[in-house]
């Protein structure tokens, strides 16, 4: 694994670690025993890390969620599935690469896995369009959902998107309509659907794959009605207030679990999934299997009813006389 790229708020940790490295080198070169100092600093670093990562501000979590080395959809697929086969295309002229789907086994059980893919290099990012689907991507996903339904395969969606793509062609081919259609059709699927927000869960672009019986989030993922930057540029007239918007929008997994928008939080290794991707993959796999086992007793009608009820109850209103 290549060296982890540090985030601005992690700077103090890296400074202490550099200091430790320096002391080690000094000790080796000069033959002076500095182990006591090194031990103290190492301990300090550990404590500082715990304190920092357990008290992350929303906008710091967003930076982790957007980290270039965060595991992508295909990383999860490679780590948790066997016998994976990818399927391409919407059967209407396009294969939108920002949404990838296929069938593979998780713990021996075949299931459809669909998700948004982000790249790490410029070339990859162009191929996957930075994880921002066009309408054709949502239509491809829907085609695969129907396929899974026909063969009674559970559906897992893995979501990490800054949103559906805002562009000329996307408007012409019906971005809004394609997302709306997915919301409607997902509501009717007779097989269990599990969605996991692994990084960015922005707006309709994320929801278009997330009308699920169980919705989970990774610890540092965020799920929101609008990107904090977008919100800040509208309400504060300045995108640089994104950190304030992130606080106001309440986008963290903790809040969303409390508000019953999501059903569980998947633990990440200290500092974020990119520090130990295999651990994050394993935790995700465990949660998906747990979710499926909870739905296994339900028949087709109950699966649909369970999902309908979940979304029907969302939102807060009151009787008020104006």
């Amino acid at each position: 694994m290549q060296k982890v790229t540090q985030l601005p708020f992690e700077k103090p940790i890296y400074e202490i670690e550099d200091k430790i490295e320096e002391l080690k080198n000094l000790s080796r070169d000069s033959g002076i025993d500095l182990s006591a100092q090194i031990d103290t600093l190492t301990k300090q670093a550990e404590e500082f890390k715990k304190k920092l990562y357990n008290n992350l501000q929303p906008y710091e979590r967003i930076q982790i969620a957007r980290h270039a080395q965060r595991p992508t959809f295909l990383d999860y697929v490679r780590n948790i599935t066997t016998d994976w086969v990818e399927f391409h295309g919407d059967r209407a002229g396009t294969d939108d690469r920002s949404i990838i789907g296929g069938i593979g086994r998780i713990d021996d059980r075949p299931m459809l896995i669909v998700g948004t893919q982000k790249g790490r290099t410029t070339r990859e990012n162009l191929e996957y369009n930075f994880g921002m689907p066009h309408p054709e991507g949502y239509r491809k996903a829907l085609r695969l959902f129907k396929h899974a339904e026909k063969f009674n395969l559970p559906i897992v969606t893995i979501i990490d998107t800054p949103g559906a793509y805002p562009g000329i062609k996307a408007e012409e081919t019906g971005q809004g309509g394609a997302i709306a259609k997915n919301l409607l059709e997902m509501a009717k699927l007779t097989v269990p659907v599990i969605s996991v927000i692994t990084g960015e869960g922005c707006s309709g672009g994320a929801l278009g794959l997330a009308v699920a019986n169980k919705v989970y989030m990774l610890e540092n993922a965020y799920y929101t009605v609008i990107t904090p930057e977008g919100c800040a540029s509208i309400l504060w007239s300045d995108a640089s207030y994104a950190d304030k918007a992130a606080d106001a929008l309440q986008i963290t997994a903790d809040f969303l679990l409390k508000s019953k928008i999501i059903d569980g939080i998947i633990k990440e290794p200290l500092g974020g999934a990119h520090y130990e991707p295999e651990v994050a993959c394993e935790n995700l796999k465990e949660m998906v299997l747990k979710g499926l086992s909870e739905l296994d007793g339900l028949d087709e009608k109950q699966i649909v009813e369970d999902r309908y009820k979940k979304f029907r109850d969302m939102g807060e209103v009151k009787a008020s006389l104006f």
């Binding site: 009717k188 309709g204 009308v211 929101t224 009605v225 929008l249 309440q250 979304f311 029907r312």
Partner: peptide, 25 residues
């Protein structure tokens, strides 16, 4: 569009209303 001031609850109204349309159908 969705009302930012109600955050994720607004986003979920998209799913809720679409589910309601599926019942109409």
């Amino acid at each position: 569009g969705a009302r930012m001031q109600e955050g994720i609850f607004s986003l979920m109204q998209m799913a809720k209303t679409s589910c309601a349309v599926s019942k109409l159908n």
